[in-house]
Nucleic acid binder design. Structure first.
Length: 803
RNA sequence: GCCCGGGUGGCGUAAUGGUAGCCGCGCACGACUCAAAAUCGUGUCUCGAAAGGGGUGUGAGUUCGAGUCUCACCCCGGGCACCA
């Protein structure tokens, strides 16, 4: 027996598997399908870190297990390759982003291949390749043609120093300060620009409802629901006193409407102008509106921002109470929520603070519990008073429905559902992204780039440094291309798409990655979709998953696919922390790279260690010292080959451990409880180690269980045992249910619930048998009462004497 | 503030309501060795000489029996946050 030389073994099998196409997807088979997907990485220059390895190892183990269980498994990998770091690097060094990105991808691919991950590399995709982004552009046109993509004015975050637009995530400094440029710390302003939007809000209802169909972590579903923020409520229409105009408000808490005493408009509300035109308040209001325009929504909607407003001098008539509501403008009222107008009352802390500041009269409709604090409407409970026909009623669902019905019947307003979700702004004034396939005629009207001109190539003759407009605007080639194809005076769209667009459909492409005529064939999608297991970090619980679901629903609505949810089962791997428990980050310089451990201990050890660390979904600190335990485990399995002897047989007790191990490891992989699966294999190893000689079949069974976890070493051992076919094509072992339990069991003996000792009894012994054994036991026999009032007996576990 | 997770040995963790601490790391002692490493063996929650107690963030409760279920509180982590 040679020693366990992981370097030699891993090199040998990596080459062999590549040569034999061991990981190519079995497309032709009639086996049931299983699609196991990782969230594809952004290929950063830093390379793979231990957090990637955790998720990838888990899905690899799962994929290998499923293959052994008789499934045809699709397990692909690709690159979310467009994005800012490469562009920023280009600005600094003038290196074209494609060069940087392709280099990073080569590095990533190499690292991933070393880990023995069974991806089908023939399906590799990169979102930055024209053969891929051609279909991202197709998707844009598909949405455009179906009225789901439109250009309209939108507020963007603008850094005056860098002369560029920033994504919301880029308006928080590293120290957590909000509303500043992440790169230079300059206070950002907001600009109105004409931007492309995807109308995700059209699907808001389905995006909430269909969460019930999928097997996702509950917290992720809650996050999605909160983000969408579906609220049922009521619109109330108010006449403005002395004017021929009316104002609509939205209320999510209809039970509290009778407490409202004033009204607040968003400063940017179109009605403001008319309300104050020619009045005394006009100048104050206009000043206020101007000041609010100069503030970002981020600043205006910060909890700590002082509430301020201005009175319009106008009054609205409340149809419910007949009250005259003073009409104010306020910084906290937002145009893009509800109707942009709020009915305000003392039952909302924000409204109350505002009213106190400006001494606006207030009313209450629920009796206070504490004299200092009025009841908060968000609690939505209590008994109403001073509420017209509803006084004396208790707030509950029926009452709320009754109030909405009453408002509707009286013609005061109507029921309405509102969402917090906003349309998806996909324009980016960036270079390194998929170009938006739109051209403008000389009048400035947008036209789609005809499909025969896709891919609409990203130009290369650009100035990366941002100068106030998109880098694509500096490309002579793009301008010339546009005029050549469309005519004189035509101009290209120079914004690119948000990289989230690229990643919102890649899982379709994997089913048919080389298709030149469609984004994926109907047959391929029908065969493989939806994704059966999707693994990725919890940081994508909102945006990526929401966008991918939106695209899926849009494609379904227009007949491209027949299902509405892309990811049937979703799991998150937890973050791996640095050894001191801190988050790994580039700035702290504590990022742990798996390479040195792969070199030192082997990929198999690193895989086993990361799975053994703890529950997959938990956040856990890396501990270099602990890796040795996993290495020792593999070495002991390696050395066990010496123990194999013809004609040997397992002790019944050892065999029962083996049967339990087959059962538990299979069940645990299915549940992705991989730490306990490894633990159980260690238990099995310990039992085998105690045997003088080992039958070949028992050893081979353990190897097959271990194969998904340690694919290299088990493959080598399998060959050493004389097999010519790969262990990864073996069937998953079956356990013998009749041999699961040991012949003798240990029963805990309790007196009034306290353990006093144990007795050994034959398997299947009944209460009477156990009592007899206890009576014959010297110590326990005298300790247990002769006439207990009750005996609780749990077969095979405990017997409890209640005196 | 609101919504999710979590608090178990020196450490990572394990326990269908049924013997808390499995498995691993570390540590201690022993074997092997001239010696060391590697390997193997024994031990390792705590008080106690022992017999026997106590112990899963705190306090109550349900139960024959609670790490596990219920309530209140404390602490840690994550997400959302002027959303009408």
């Amino acid at each position: 027996m040679g020693s366990y030389d992981h370097k030699k073994i891993e090199k040998k099998w990596r080459k062999r598997w590549e040569e034999t196409g061991a990981n190519i997807t079995d497309e032709s088979s009639t086996k049931p399908k299983h699609y196991v997907l990782d969230m594809f990485p952004y290929p950063s220059g830093l390379g793979l870190h231990t957090g990637h390895v955790e998720g990838y190892a888990a899905t690899d183990i799962y994929s290998r297990f499923k293959r052994m269980k008789g499934f045809s498994v699709l397990h692909p990998m690709g690159w979310d390759a467009f994005g800012l770091p490469a562009e920023n690097y280009a600005i600094k060094t003038k290196t074209p982003p494609r060069e940087t990105t392709d280099k990073a991808i080569d590095n990533f691919r190499n690292q991933i291949q070393q880990l023995g991950l069974s991806y089908d590399w023939s399906r590799e995709i990169g979102t930055h390749n024209p053969s891929y982004y051609q279909w991202t552009q197709w998707l844009f046109l598909f949405l455009f043609e179906n009225g789901l993509a439109e250009k309209r004015m939108g507020k963007v975050n603008w850094c005056p120093k860098d002369q560029t637009v920033l994504a919301n995530e880029q308006t928080v400094s590293e120290s957590g300060e909000k509303g500043v440029c992440v790169r230079c710390g300059t206070k950002i302003v907001q600009r109105e620009l004409s931007q492309w939007f995807f109308k995700i809000t059209d699907f808001a209802d389905a995006l909430v409802k269909d969460l019930d169909q999928v097997d996702w972590p509950e917290s992720t579903k809650i996050n999605q629901r909160n983000w969408i923020g579906r609220k049922e409520g009521v619109i109330v229409t108010h006449k403005v006193k002395g004017m021929d105009m009316s104002l609509d408000t939205f209320s999510a808490f209809p039970a509290w409407l009778f407490a409202d005493t004033y009204m607040v408009l968003a400063p940017e509300h179109p009605a403001v102008k008319t309300l104050v035109a020619g009045t005394e308040a006009q100048k104050d209001v206009e000043d206020f509106v101007k000041r609010m325009q100069d503030m970002t929504t981020i600043d205006r909607t910060n909890v700590n921002t002082e509430k301020e407003g201005v009175f319009t001098g106008r009054f609205a008539l409340d149809p419910l109470t007949g009250r005259e509501f003073p009409i104010w403008l306020a910084n906290f009222a937002l145009m893009d929520f509800g109707t942009g107008i709020i009915r305000c009352s003392s039952h909302d802390i924000r409204d109350l603070t505002f009213a106190k500041k400006y001494t606006i009269p207030l009313a209450e409709v629920v009796e206070r519990e504490h004299p200092d604090a009025p009841v908060d409407a968000h609690a939505n409970k209590g008994i109403l008073k001073d509420s017209g026909p509803f006084s004396g009623r208790t707030i509950n669902v029926e009452l709320i429905q009754g109030i909405i019905k009453w408002i509707t019947e009286k013609g005061y307003g109507q029921a309405r559902v509102t969402y917090r979700l906003r349309d998806w702004l996909i324009s980016r004034q960036r270079y390194w992204g998929a170009p938006i396939p739109i051209v403008y005629d000389p009048e400035g009207k947008p036209h789609p780039v005809p499909k025969e001109h896709l891919p609409w190539l990203l130009p290369e003759d650009v100035e990366y440094l941002p100068k106030g407009t998109s880098p694509l605007g500096t490309s002579k080639e793009l301008a010339e291309r546009t005029e050549k194809i469309f005519g004189k005076g035509w101009k290209p769209e120079i914004d690119t798409m948000d990289t989230f667009v690229c990643s919102s459909w890649y899982f379709f492409r994997f089913t048919d990655p080389k298709n030149a005529g469609e984004f994926a064939s109907k047959e391929a999608m029908q065969k493989w979709m939806p994704v059966d297991l999707y693994m990725g970090g919890a940081e994508h619980t909102v945006l990526h998953l929401m966008y991918a679901r939106f695209i899926t629903k849009a494609l379904q609505k227009f007949g491209h696919i027949s299902f509405g949810e892309p990811f049937q089962k979703l799991r998150h791997q937890g973050m791996i922390l640095a050894e001191d428990g801190a988050k790994m980050s580039k700035s702290k310089g504590n990022v742990i790279n798996p390479d040195e451990f792969v070199a030192l201990y082997g990929a198999d050890t690193v895989r086993v260690y990361e799975m053994f660390m703890g529950p997959l979904e938990a956040m856990k600190p890396w501990n270099t010292k602990n890796i040795i335990g996993s290495r020792r485990f593999l070495e002991r399995v390696w050395r066990l080959q010496e123990r194999v002897q013809e004609g040997a047989s397992l002790k019944a007790e050892t065999n029962s451990v083996l049967q339990q191990t087959i059962k538990k490891v299979g069940e645990d992989i299915e549940l992705l409880s991989l730490n306990t699966a490894v633990s159980q294999m260690m238990i099995c190893l310990n039992a085998f180690d105690a045997e003088e000689a080992l039958p070949l079949s028992a050893y081979e069974t353990l190897l097959r269980l271990l194969a998904p976890f340690a694919p290299y070493m088990t493959e080598e051992l399998w060959e050493l045992l004389g097999h010519t076919a790969s262990i990864h094509q073996e069937e998953w072992p079956l356990f013998d249910a009749s041999k699961l339990e040991k012949d003798e069991v240990v029963i805990a003996v309790q007196l009034a619930g306290k353990v006093k000792g144990t007795v050994i009894a034959p398997r299947g012994a009944g209460e009477g048998d156990i009592v007899k054994i206890i009576r014959e036991d010297g110590k326990l026999g005298t300790l247990m009462p002769q006439n207990p009032s009750r005996i609780v007996f749990v077969p095979g576990r405990i017997i409890n004497f209640i005196p």
